[in-house]
Amino acid sequence: MTDYWNLDAALAEETTVPLKFKYGILGVARVLEPGSTNNDIDSGTKVDAPLWLAAALSRRGMTSFGAPELYSERYRRKINAGAECMNLKGRAPYFYDVGNKCNEFMQDLTLSAFLSRTYATRYRELVSKGLSTVSGEDMLELQSKLSLEELSVFEAGRDAVARTETWARGARPRVLAAAVVPSRKRASAPDDSKGREARQRVEG
């Protein structure tokens, strides 16, 4: 189980996976399958269920589940052909979390190899290249492509680059203003507004 208190971990577990019931279930068919006419689910039926439910029931040996379609052979070929072209944010914002979680149950070595290969390619092609591109349009396009895990790596990288540049110019970070202004504002504010920030802080 990933961190209990983590918001992103909880949201990642909402991804639906194909779930197969070993014994069936009573009375909740309409919830699991909105189009169902029956109240019960027979044994051996496959439904789409969120990952947290699938994992919890499979741990007890009551169900079994497979990975979402994005990890299937067809998509793997597609992603292997050009991992950097895939828009993960739209399709699977928690691509790696969900993949790893599924793999806990599937123990599929090819899947882990596939995940790490995808990450390596995308890191090289998107994240590290993105750190040196400057055009705002490219940046937007890039950010709309990265999965949330990659995005946090990317943001951290950009912050580090900015700090290195400040250091290389021989300047030291501001003591008071930087410590008080929340990081979100600091990231978005252009450099020349630092004096104004300090004053805002004073008023606040």
Partner: peptide, 29 residues
């Protein structure tokens, strides 16, 4: 207890746990 009933009960139990977790995350955050 037959497996069918057990599965159903586990489903309800897991749903309760899940809802509790998400609510706690909400409050904590």
């Amino acid at each position: 207890v037959d497996e069918l009933t057990a599965t159903t009960m586990c489903l309800h139990y897991e749903c309760i746990k899940r809802n509790k977790r998400l609510l706690l995350i909400y409050m904590n955050e």
